[in-house]
Nucleic acid binder design. Structure first.
Lengths: 204, 204
DNA sequence: GAAGTTTTGTATCGAGTGGTAGATAAGTCT
DNA sequence: AGACTTATCTACCACTCGATACAAAACTTC
């Protein structure tokens, strides 16, 4: 075992609590007082473990990504491009209205715009959102190589469309929309997905 | 003319500057120091004119709504439901990447999640976003009565879909996506709009 | 047990927060 | 002109912000 006094709190548990605070109040809106209270530790412990408020957010984002990663693995394992899209939107509708978490998406509510001294937070969140879009794009490109998606389809456009709808669903959920509302949006989006020229559908 | 010393600044000009600060930094991220500097006035003048930081935001939101109202009038004047949707998405793509403003949408970046003491800001923004959705829904219901939209179409679902995509485009634009990227998303969304069962299209 | 190492709690730092008191300036009214 | 009304400025309020110094506590190693 390592030397010195052992840590009296569980890092992952504390991160979960911090994640919830950032999720519900955004980076600027989450004060150290709120964070330390939720995490059940004092400020010096927080700084010793995570370095800074920004470091804490990044650690929380890593944990968030880790959670979502399992979902995405299932999504990307869909047999066809259409099934991937279906799984993705449905997974978003569920997760953004999961009563175990604040409504919406941490990567959206966490901070689209921040004050002085937090200028890089929006970039941090954006790059994490971009990761999901890249995963989808890669999967659709593969589908195209497999002949599952028409050669004239546009994997990048499809991925960006889905990613955009997911962000929009985050905004919607954050303002109290219920699960059925998100599912309805997912349904319409999926129709669009299936039939648009970018997916190789017939233009009107 | 009214009695007393006349105001030395133009209220609307000052509001435009305040709007930009809220837009770029969000409600919590916009400090009074930033606001007063941008508006070119001192704190007491600000409070005399707008009552509080929240009052200033609401006034800025009113002005924002006023601006968008002209665009929406053009959007809703589209001859068909499809043309309304097309105009709406294209108007969003343009306005969210207008170099004269911060990228994205004030109603999205302004504050999806806020800190203690600003709890009602997200509601305020949400209710303004809901207004646009309601306008679209009403217009689509009218289209349905006109026989322009199929009887089995779902005006509420279509309006919510478009509104969600618009929010998503706001998120996308806020992270630096350019106009063409938003136009591409609009194009895919429009295909979905035209062909989905909610619009009276043929289900797969 | 003594030395060494790390974490914890208390107490606090300087800077910045939203907001205001009070005096002064700049107008209109009679 | 003088009374009245409103806006502006300087200075400042109590408070909260993110972050830290320091000493006591809790462990491992020798």
């Amino acid at each position: 075992m390592v030397m010195g006094r052992p840590r009296s709190f569980d890092t992952d548990k504390a991160l979960d609590e911090a994640m919830e605070v950032f999720w519900r109040h955004g980076y600027d809106g989450a004060s150290l007082a709120m964070l330390t209270k939720a995490m059940g530790i004092k400020a010096p412990s927080l700084y010793a473990a995570f370095g800074s408020k920004e470091g804490l957010l990044k650690a929380a984002l890593d944990r968030y990504a880790q959670r979502r990663c399992e979902h995405m693995r299932h999504v990307l394992a869909g047999a066809t491009a259409r099934e991937v899209a279906e799984r993705f939107l449905s997974s978003i509708a569920e997760s953004h209205t999961d009563p175990a978490n604040p409504p919406g998406c941490l990567l959206v509510q966490g901070g689209l715009a921040c004050g002085e001294g937090s200028e890089n937070i929006p970039f941090e969140l954006a790059s994490r959102r971009a990761q999901t879009e890249a995963d989808l794009r890669e999967r659709f490109a593969q589908a195209q190589r497999d002949g599952d998606l028409a050669p004239e389809a546009d994997p990048a456009a499809l991925a960006r469309f889905l990613s955009t709808v997911a962000s929009g669903m985050g905004v919607l959920a954050s303002s109290g929309a219920d699960r059925d509302a998100l599912r309805a949006v997912a349904r319409v989006s999926l129709s669009a997905f299936t039939r648009c020229p970018e997916a190789g559908g017939v233009p009107s």
